[in-house]
Nucleic acid binder design. Structure first.
Lengths: 120, 120
DNA sequence: AGAATGTATTGACAATCATCGATATATGGC
DNA sequence: GCCATATATCGATGATTGTCAATACATTCT
């Protein structure tokens, strides 16, 4: 059952609980769609291998990194690295463009900013 | 095979690939342990329900929120809410203390700061 | 003590995930 | 055209996850 502090008046509180428990939780009208979008971003960061890959790509600055140089430091197989990069890409954290045989990956700073801001 | 730009000299590059591909990826000597720790934090944020719960708890400021007031806005069952709060707690994002029958949850700003900082 | 209430745990199940080997696709060099 | 290389996709598998009903635990009130 819901409750409130003695100093707060709210609706939807039983008489028995009045003065017993919580300040009412802020409405903070939480957009269901935004939450899902943010969660997808954080899900992409929720793996140590992906964090490592992202860090490697980010550390190249604007130059970007090609997959061939990410495989060995990641300690994972080439298909696994490709998979993780796809996850990062679909989460909007990196972009990829193909130049010749190589695929170049760049970070998307705006997306990182967005996630960082959400933790404010 | 690994590659490099024409302007960069590195070890571990084949002659054939020299001047063909990437700037060498920054060492950014990535601590395996830190990555796992960060990943755990982001994993806790990788669910819309948990983001919502965290937002609700955070919106109470220093007062904190008791579980009873989180269940209904979350749209999930009480055990599910309890489970998600446990995940958030074990990720270091919230603390819980029991006062009487009620359990009060507070955010841990330092942990949020740490994750925010990790996003550069 | 017994009833009612707030929260946590257990058990089960479907869904998603991380990983790799095998294979496919594409590009460049000969 | 043929071969080597770079990357992506497919298929399989073991692990993890989100969810709820049922249950256990703890506290307060009568």
């Amino acid at each position: 059952m819901t409750a409130t502090t003695t100093t707060t008046t709210t609706t939807k509180r039983t008489l028995a609980a009045l003065g017993a428990c919580c300040t009412p939780v802020g409405s903070a009208e939480f957009d269901e769609h935004d939450a899902a979008e943010l969660a997808k971003g954080f899900a992409a960061l929720a793996d140590p291998v992906r964090l490592h890959l992202l860090s490697l790509v980010a550390s190249t600055g604007t130059s970007g990194a090609c997959v061939c140089d990410l495989i060995e430091p990641s300690g994972r197989s080439q298909p696994t690295v490709s998979h993780h990069l796809k996850v990062l890409r679909e989460a909007g954290l990196v972009t990829s463009d193909k130049r010749g045989t190589w695929a170049w990956y760049h970070v998307v700073p705006g997306r990182l900013d967005q996630l960082r801001t959400a933790l404010r």
